[in-house]
Design a protein around this nucleic acid. Sequence first.
RNA 1: GGCGCCAUGGUGCAUCGGUUAGCACACGGCUCUUUCAAGGCCGAAAGACGGGUUCGACUCCCGUUGGCGCCGCCA
Length: 499
Amino acid sequence: MNKPRLRFAPSPTGSPHVGNIRTAVFNYLYCRHNDGTFILRIEDTDRERCTEGSLEEIMLSLRWMGMDWDEGPEVGGDYGPYFQSQRLDIYKKYAEELIERGRAYRCYCTKERLEELRKYQESNKLPLGYDRRCRELGLDERARLERENPEPVIRFAMNIEGTTEFDDVVRGHLVFDNSLQDDFVIIKSDGYPTYNFANVVDDHLMQITHVIRGEEFISSTPKHVQLYEAFGWKAPIWVSVPLILDERRRKLSKRSDTQTRFVSYIEDGYLPEAMLNFLATMGWSSGEDKKIYTREELIQQFTLEGISTSAAVFDLARLNDLQGEHVRLLSVDDLAGRLIPFLKEAGYIGDPPTPSDLEYLKRIVPLIQPRLVLLKDAPDMMLYFYRDDFDYEEKGARKYLIKENSPQLLEVVAEKLGSLHEWSCTTIERAVREGGISLNMEGGQVIHPVRVAITGRTVGPGLFELMDVIGKDRCVARLRRAADWARSRLEVVESQTSS
RNA sequence: GGCGCCAUGGUGCAUCGGUUAGCACACGGCUCUUUCAAGGCCGAAAGACGGGUUCGACUCCCGUUGGCGCCGCCA
């Protein structure tokens, strides 16, 4: 049996979006599951909509997800070029061939006429579509029209009798009435092919075996099927995957409130593992109740039969849950490594990080790992490990620091800690608690003020573990600083109340 | 408007003729605990509707309704 060949064929008309990448995921997983060839083909046939930089973002996104392509831009291959804009002569040749066979024709209709036609059809509630005026033209008329519009398009002459049928792996047997079909444009007046044409020609030439694409293409598949028939080519296996919907249950688009730019998820510090897990399980299921999949499991278990028929709503909460799970699955070293870029940017560690930077980081990571979701939030969560001059959180300060006996408590604890010979969670805990007891305070009464003094915050990892990492001298200094600060604030409060 | 696709809790999935309809997220409560997470326990929450087929339908068929998609010299 021949190895499958699949392609992901985005058009570089902007930043890739989540829906695009999900389609790529299915193609990629099927490919790897079946030891096939994964091809990246760039469908840059709309010169007006192509944007600078989007190709780079597409490639970056795929690589970030670990979905490297076997053929395509930057890696080459035997079926190139992989940019449709570099294959214009090929499309021209095949379009001419169709004209010779009577299966395509030049159309001289102007955009104005097409627009009028459309308006007429709309206002009279007629089916929309080209009226085939140029399909059967006499020589004289053709010459006349050519003078009027020297840049004709080429349209495919659809078979308008009977039906066009095909099998879709996900949808089953599909039947479309040919009388409703449109003579669609295959070559535009600027000489570029349309998607409907270039896609078919390239899929054939590149020997694509399976076309896995969004279900929005179901309606245009009859066009493609007829093209294959007209050329006498064997059509690929059609696989129409369900759409991803936004919060309003519309096809995911730039207008959705849901963030659709894929690279923004990279910037936010999502893990490629989590993203892959999330995207693969939207519209696909292995059949078992399972939440976390590794890349290897996905590749091993992915089959076309598991693709569902109904569209799925993009649920950020689920993505975040998966993200948290994958963060917790990482080893300390691994997570530390992935945090480095974010910490460099925050200025917490050097570039490159020193061995002591790394050593310190690896002591912090276990403390934040259970509560970290987005990697980009790590610097803020780690602030007090790297900075001593932080501000006290307003609410926490009011509740725990600006209190009658707080300065004294903090100083007593500082004293106890300062005299410690051994610095460990257990000795720290004992010292802190004893400090409290000497003032008739216990548990939360002492721990909360100390936490705010040490971290500036009311929430975070276990207090003694975090103090252990921060170190004795810094902890003592912070307690004294907090005591002084609290005392000064207390005086302000007093003078205000007495006046 | 035409054509097509789809239809299990709020969301993502499981169950592919016989189940008290299962899991996860989110939500609520409890628990652990110095806080926040993570974890554990509990709870609320679903087969759109109507006909068939069948001993028996969430599951198969038809219709209705609803949602979505497409109808471009976009892809």
